[in-house]
């Protein structure tokens, strides 16, 4: 029984060779572009590169300069304001719409089509439409004034103090449909019997939502949160289209700051430092989530 010949295990490198060859684009993208590109940018953020990237290290100079720049501070403040309100409103509106859609209504498809179509449009289109609607001379403000309320003022795009809310309105218009869809999918994933049990127990509907359904939808909320949050950090096109960062620098955001410093101000070091800060912000959102989502789970 022990006398069998034992042909060796074939070379592991050549097992599944076709699969490995087919995965080369993916491996290159993952390692060279995503990993390598990120490391490259982080490394060069410690240099004093101006017009061209140069490897002359200056320590944390670029970061000190960055946090001394009023424009960057404005960008960060804008991002924080926009981010907070965007999270709160898109989750609330998205969930409310989804809950309404889940009442076994008629025309569900029609409503969903209406809520979701802005998501198919680009941020450029979104920004330009809302720029027009919020135009104080012809838009909402003038229409309401012409109705007799002559002192009515609503010109977010021309008022530095509230310009970011003007962008928020447009962003919510574009993005809440997606949140609604994700929430609706989450609601539909909940066992019908939960509802039956709650009804039998005589729990009012709003209480069922608040104390039973929402806690059950925790994973959906977390995923949605991550999606919204990583979208917030990226916000760029919408600002460019709607306000070009104006008035002045009042609606500037980090992504635009990075772009301008890299491609217009020809101050690459600043751009790299700012983009590294963006990366840091995303990491703060993603790492805990990825840890919670994938950390505990083992593949079988």
């Amino acid at each position: 029984m022990a006398a069998h010949t034992q042909p060796g295990r074939p070379n592991q490198l050549f097992r599944n060779l076709n699969s490995k060859i087919a995965s080369i684009p993916m491996m290159l993208t993952a390692v060279v572009i995503f990993l390598g590109g990120t490391i490259w940018t982080v490394v060069y953020s410690f240099t004093n590169s101006k017009l061209l990237p140069r490897l002359s290290f200056v320590g944390l100079d670029q970061y000190e300069r960055l946090w001394d720049t009023p424009r960057w501070i404005v960008s960060i403040q804008n991002l924080a304001t926009y981010g907070c309100f965007s999270l709160i409103f898109s989750l609330t509106i998205g969930f409310l719409l989804a809950a309404l859609m889940d009442q076994k209504i008629r025309f569900e498809n029609t409503f969903r089509t209406i809520f979701l179509y802005p998501f198919a449009l680009s941020f450029i289109v979104t920004g330009l439409v809302w720029q027009w609607i919020l135009n104080p001379e012809f838009g909402v403000q003038s229409v309401i004034r012409s109705l007799g309320w002559t002192s009515f003022t609503f010109d977010p795009l021309y008022n530095s103090d509230i310009v970011i809310y003007g962008i928020l309105i447009a962003a919510l218009w574009q993005g809440t449909g997606l949140v609604m869809c994700l929430m609706l999918a989450g609601l539909r994933g909940i066992d019908e019997d939960i509802w039956k049990a709650a009804r039998v127990d005589g729990i009012p509907m709003w209480k069922t939502y608040l104390f039973i359904i929402i806690p059950m939808m925790r994973p959906v909320f977390v995923t949605t949160l991550v999606i919204i949050a990583s979208g917030i950090v990226r916000i760029y096109d919408l600002v460019v289209a709607q306000t070009s960062g104006g008035p002045g620098i009042a609606s500037d955001v980090p992504a635009k700051y990075v772009y301008d410093y890299m491609f217009f101000a020809q101050n690459l070091g600043q751009g790299f430092a700012a983009s590294t800060m963006m990366l840091l912000a995303v990491a703060i959102i993603i790492v805990p989530w990825a840890y919670l989502e994938f950390g505990g789970r083992k593949r079988g």
């Binding site: 592991q12 390692v31 572009i33 995503f34 590109g37 990120t38 760029y236 890299m262 990366l279 995303v282």
Partner: peptide, 30 residues
């Protein structure tokens, strides 16, 4: 057709989807 390491590349790829484009754009330009 999973092979040793295929999941690692995939994980990097998915994490990469969350990295702001601004971080990777300049190396790609070069």
């Amino acid at each position: 057709w999973r092979f040793k390491g295929s999941e690692i590349f995939f994980t990097i790829l998915i994490v990469g989807a969350f990295i702001p484009y601004q971080v990777m754009i300049y190396p790609i330009v070069i």
